[in-house]
């Protein structure tokens, strides 16, 4: 099976933690697998609330990732 190449985007303070605004990522079949990778790679993220959007749609359950999917990580903002 061909491995999915996804476009990963970080917003707010997640960009500061991961060190990138946008990058490509290969080989994550679904969002659960992606989350495991994320926690391993950036343990600090476990302390921060954020939600995941796939192809500009907020998801609240495990979602299959396809080639060229866009995955966005969105923390809440507090300032005003």
């Amino acid at each position: 099976m061909e491995q999915a190449l996804i476009r990963l985007m970080c917003f707010g303070m997640l960009e500061e933690i991961t060190g990138f605004k946008e990058r490509q990522l290969i080989g994550k079949q679904d969002t659960d697998q992606f989350r495991i990778w994320l926690n391993d790679e950036f343990p600090e993220l476990q302390k921060i609330d954020f939600v995941i959007a796939v192809n500009r749609k907020l998801i609240n359950q495990n979602t299959v990732l396809k080639n060229e999917d866009e995955v966005a990580l969105l923390p809440p903002f507090s300032g005003g």
Binding site: G12, M13, K47, I48, D49, V51, L58, L74, P75, P76, F77, S78, G79, G80
Partner: peptide, 15 residues
């Protein structure tokens, strides 16, 4: 519907 609640560990800085 976006952020059901904020966990107690959350530290999102304000301005």
């Amino acid at each position: 519907d976006i952020y059901p609640q904020i966990s107690s560990e959350n530290k999102i800085p304000n301005c």
